[in-house]
């Protein structure tokens, strides 16, 4: 079985140590697709997750992608991001903000169309 054996491949970090015991970011700035852009380079002595986020988000990166890359739950990543946002090391951009802008040709596809595509795929 390809499932990872528990306790062997895990990281010894417990999640509460990453966040200092917090379980809530206290802000709703971040959802799954919020784009994160680093505003500075990682500095030595930084928590490794923060440094990894800064490296990863040199170019706009979605929260969910960061979470996948770090293999952490999204809620935890939100807390880490909130810390970084609080110190001004990243900026968060919501994709919806681009939706109403001048780039109307890049807006999200209509859910109806997506649904039709799904139906079509299933019919294949």
């Amino acid at each position: 079985m390809s499932r990872r054996r528990p306790g062997r491949d895990d990281s010894p970090d417990r999640l509460y140590t990453l966040t200092g015991g917090r379980s809530s970011s206290g802000s709703d700035v971040f959802d799954l697709v919020t784009l994160i852009v680093a505003e500075c380079d990682p500095v030595p002595g930084m928590q490794s997750e923060h440094a990894a986020i800064l490296r990863m988000s040199r170019f706009p990166t979605a929260v969910v992608e960061i979470a996948a890359e770090l293999e952490l739950p999204v809620s935890i990543v939100r807390i880490l991001l909130a810390d970084l946002l609080g110190t001004g090391r990243i900026s968060a951009r919501h994709p919806r903000t681009a939706h109403g802008s001048a780039h109307s040709s890049y807006r999200l596809p209509d859910p109806d169309i997506l649904e039709q595509v799904l139906v079509g795929l299933r019919n294949l």
Binding site: F59, P60, P95, A98, H103
Partner: peptide
Amino acid sequence: AAHPDGPDAAGRAPRI
């Protein structure tokens, strides 16, 4: 390509 990253990434095109 259909992902909403598109517009934003395009807006930052000079860096990419």
